[in-house]
């Protein structure tokens, strides 16, 4: 009987900013192309649906050793994941991720941002990190850190208007990304400062 194909090893999750990837080491068979298939099992399937597994069609019989599972990990519960190898008629056992994966463990990075002064207006450009993200923006007049103001930005269309600035004054801004679905935030971005148009007659 043909030797059983070895199951994929080193199965792990790479999860950053709510994008989740399952990765594994290749099964090496000299001169052959091994294919892989991935399945997932949510807590619902484990507890209420006879521990059933659900195939991910985009990762069925693929040659890559990574699978984007983001769309299927769409609830904040514990998921099981497994992958097996196929070579012609030969098939391996399932290799299963050690431990569960819950999306609330994703690593969150601060947003890429650009602060703009346009006349007396303080503006902010933010990176679009996906539909799950909002941004908590803190801004203050330099030297008046205790009078820091906050704005939550949910729509990242383009240049977001934060506030108006006093003529000639310098304003600083920092932001963190926030994901409501898992109730977690990233660390703050680097602070950026800009200066308002200098015409002080505005204040007479």
């Amino acid at each position: 009987e043909e030797a059983l194909l070895p199951a994929p090893q080193n199965i792990s999750i790479l999860s950053t900013n709510m994008k989740h990837f399952l990765t594994w080491s290749p099964v090496i068979i000299q001169g052959e192309t091994v294919r892989y298939s991935v399945e997932f099992q949510g807590e619902y399937e484990r507890v209420y649906a006879n521990e059933s597994w659900i195939p991910i069609s985009e990762c069925s019989l693929i040659t890559a050793t990574a699978c984007n599972i983001t769309e299927d990990i769409s609830a904040t519960v514990a998921y099981n994941l497994r992958v097996r190898a196929d070579l012609g008629a030969r098939r391996s056992e399932w290799g299963t991720l050690k431990g569960f994966f819950n999306r609330n463990t994703t690593s969150l990075t601060p947003p890429v941002m650009k602060v703009i002064a346009d006349g007396y207006h303080l503006l902010l450009e933010l990176e679009d990190m996906g539909p799950a993200f909002q941004f908590r923006v803190l801004y203050w007049k330099k030297g008046q850190e205790r009078r820091m103001q906050q704005k939550v930005v949910k729509e990242v269309s383009s240049v977001v208007h934060l506030d108006t600035m006093e003529a000639g004054a310098e304003y600083c801004v920092k932001a963190q990304s926030y994901v409501e679905d898992i109730n977690r935030s990233s660390s703050f971005s680097q602070t950026q400062c800009v200066r308002a148009q200098g015409d002080t007659s505005m204040w007479l």
Partner: peptide
């Protein structure tokens, strides 16, 4: 702003 061609967004 038609002069500077800059567009701002408010929510």
């Amino acid at each position: 702003n038609k002069k500077t061609k800059k567009r701002w967004f408010f929510s």
